[in-house]
């Protein structure tokens, strides 16, 4: 077991080294990877909420809050300072997450998903309609900010954005994993299997979900701010429901059982998107659709689940993160129980 975990640590170190060395070795500013790092953030937020069994189809709203925040603050400060802009984006998305979260954590499943969608579309319309403030569908230009007081050339700026995104993602993945292993994180997972019992343990399921929701909003906001900084513009499309769906899509693609699913999913998604667009023209959506179908049918635990299976086979142990859903109903396992809420009132 010790060799197994040290092997895993070694692999992680190699991956980190490759990620850090990439811009230096390749000589490019790695803008493809910067997008991957940035987009993995909102996906991580979706994965957090999925631990409680809740799917948000509106997280693009926080993505847009992040991007527009750096646009507005940057404009007010005539360019601004990257560190300050990112802090402002995190703070704005935290506030927005709290505001929307207070409403949506009262709902579950389809109602939770649709309510998020509704909030995000309200924001989308506002961004489109208030032309004088937001620039309407033309969007809001994001000027290149200084970094720690230094004005940057384009290549240098992109390289630094690469490292900033990478560092934020690394911190977020580590923090996310720690959070899911904490009492709060475990209570979040408990909401998925039996919310009634969560309450009967003296824990407020709504409060636990709100904490996760605000965290996911901040992650989405930081992701939006970074993508906005890379692309130099924020448009209402940032808040559009298709983008919210994309985050959910990428989460399922990567695997929702582990924080690493966010990174794996974002990488594969962006890779397919850019290479399919290059080789097969306008059919990248179809390619992605087929890939997602294959993942759902043959690897329901996503890329990370597939990797864990492969890892288990290679190391010879049963190092599986989690059994596949169908294995939970092995012959000697007891039958799955119906929804818990009904059981409590029963048998009087």
């Amino acid at each position: 077991m010790a060799t197994n975990s040290s092997l895993r640590l070694a692999l992680l170190a190699v991956a980190a080294l490759v990620a850090v060395a990439y811009p230096i070795v390749s000589g490019s500013s790695g803008s493809f990877l910067t997008i991957v790092w940035a987009k993995a953030l909102p996906v991580l937020g979706i994965i957090l909420l999925l631990q409680a069994g809740q799917v948000s189809f509106g997280h693009a709203m926080f993505f847009a809050v992040g991007a527009y925040t750096i646009g507005f603050v940057g404009r007010a400060m005539a360019g601004g300072e990257l560190v300050l802009l990112l802090v402002a984006a995190a703070f704005a998305s935290l506030l927005a997450g709290l505001l929307v979260g207070v409403f949506v954590v009262r709902y579950r499943y389809i109602f939770f998903g649709m309510l998020n969608l509704a909030f995000s579309m309200v924001l989308f319309s506002m961004l489109e309609k208030f032309i004088h403030v937001t620039g309407g569908s033309d969007g809001l230009r994001i000027a290149r900010p200084t970094i720690l007081g230094e004005a940057m050339g384009r290549a240098q700026y992109e390289t630094i954005l690469y490292y900033v995104s990478l560092a934020i993602l690394a911190l977020a993945l580590y923090g996310g994993a720690r959070f899911l292993d904490s009492p709060l994180g475990h209570a979040l997972k408990a909401i998925k299997s039996n919310e009634t019992r969560v309450e009967y343990l003296g824990i407020s399921a709504r409060l636990v979900l709100l904490v996760a929701y605000v965290a996911s909003a901040v992650l989405a906001g930081l992701g939006g701010a970074l993508v906005g900084a890379i692309q130099g513009i924020a448009t209402p499309d940032y808040a559009y429901w298709v983008r919210s769906g994309e985050f959910v899509f990428v989460a399922i693609l990567g695997g929702t059982g582990h924080v690493a699913g966010a990174l794996a999913g974002a990488f594969v998604y962006e890779f397919i998107r850019s290479s399919a667009a290059a080789y097969v023209g306008d059919t990248w959506q179809m390619t992605l659709g087929i890939v997602l179908l294959a993942v759902i049918l043959f690897a329901p635990r996503g890329i990370v689940g597939m990797a864990a299976d492969l890892w288990g086979r290679l190391t010879g142990g049963s190092a599986r993160a989690e059994p596949a859903p169908e294995e939970a109903d092995a012959p000697d396992a007891p039958a799955r129980e119906p929804r818990p809420l009904r059981i409590v009132g029963g048998g009087r």
């Binding site: 720690r178 959070f179 904490s182 009492p183 709060l184 209570a187 343990l201 003296g202 904490v211």
Partner: peptide
């Protein structure tokens, strides 16, 4: 989870 709830241990990054 029950014991953590009883003792109100909800620091977000402490291990359960």
């Amino acid at each position: 989870i029950a014991a953590a709830s009883q003792a109100r241990r909800f620091a977000p990054f402490a291990r359960l």
